[in-house]
Amino acid sequence: MNAHPTFRIAAIPADGVGAEVVEATRTVLNEIARNAAEPFELSWEEFPWGSHYYEQHGRMMPEDGLDQLNGFDAIFFGAVGWPSVPDHVSLWGLRLAVCQGFDQWANIRPVRFLPGVRSPLRRADTADLDWVVIRENSEGEYAGLGGRNLGARGAGHEVAVQSALFTETGCERIIRFAFDMARERDHRKVTGVTKSNAQQYGMVLWDEVFQRVAADYPDVETELVLVDAMAARFVLHPESLSVVVASNLHADILSDLGSALVGSLGVAASANINVERRFPSMFEPVHGSAPDIAGQGIANPIGAFGSAALLLDHLGLPAAADSLRRAITAVTAAGVLTPDVGGQASTKEVTSALIEHL
């Protein structure tokens, strides 16, 4: 009888380079599983959903897609988006449908600088920079509330209303999640991002909850910073950051800025977590589907590998996750890089080099 634990992983390559980085990640994770000090097994099932599925079926995934995914230990996602399908259709029809349907309310986006990857930030050459953005992932500006009306009045008279949703429960759980994470880091600090000077209802509630939660963590340094000032802080004083918690839209933008400061969206990892584990969590690189380079074999798999490390953490395999992170660092330090970060390596060459370093 096989005594090794087996984890069921749903793979959704979706669109463009998503298929390439998911294939690379499956290769790496299977290698890690076989050679871990405490071996484990991964049972993969791939779902062919995405924009091409939409072209055939008029949907990004089947009507019972969530039922099919429920019961897996985790989901690994590639990227969504293709020129033939409007972006709001592809995003809401697949990725957001999974995130919201499975209440994956905590989005973790580490900002991790890598040796060998040139940062446009001069301070990165002399400072030890390492922070993480915690994004509220279920409501806020992406709640999907609103509508378009009055189009019958004629051209130029239609009205669109988009409402942001801030609930006390939603604010508290993500802010408390950020404070709990800060307690696990060397620099125990949480920076809350707000815009309460202009958004006098939702963001004032956010601020009030932040201050109330902060009182329960006297051992953690805290501050609230307006989002525009926070964007400047990312560039001018990144050494002051440890854990940054923000609403859905603000964290989405700031985390992409952080990835750009690292050197490329291609190296950025993320995890969409259902913290209570009532549903599977989903792991994905931050980069998009990149139709301009899809199929050329030069997609950067580092962001996907970093997301796989977060997946291993979530499965309770921290030693395997650490070995993967060390291998990522070794590969970039050795200069095995794809074109987006100034190298000439292919996706397969980066994957092979990483396996050698494992």
Rank of each mutant, 00 (worst) to 15 (best):
W206P: 11
T6C: 15
D186T: 14
A124K: 11
G303P: 07
S323N: 14
A229C: 09
V89S: 01
D125M: 06
S346Y: 03
G18K: 01
D130Q: 10
S84G: 15
I32M: 10
A260G: 15
Y142G: 06
R185W: 00
V22N: 04
S352P: 03
D180V: 04
G151V: 09
N272Q: 08
A143Q: 07
E41A: 15
L114C: 05
G335Q: 06
L236T: 15
R34A: 15
N2Y: 05
G306R: 02
L121I: 14
T27A: 13
E41Y: 00
E46H: 04
V22Y: 01
L265S: 11
A304N: 05
H314Q: 08
A327H: 10
D207G: 02
V111H: 08
L241E: 12
T169Y: 14
S281D: 11
F72G: 13
Q104M: 12
G101F: 02
A260C: 12
A353E: 12
F279H: 13
E356F: 00
A106S: 14
P39S: 10
L354A: 07
L29W: 02
R122I: 00
P115V: 05
H250S: 14
G170L: 02
E168A: 10
A3F: 15
S196Q: 13
Q211H: 04
R325F: 00
P86R: 14
D67A: 12
D87T: 10
A268K: 06
A320I: 00
Q344V: 04
A229T: 14
V193M: 09
V85A: 10
V85K: 07
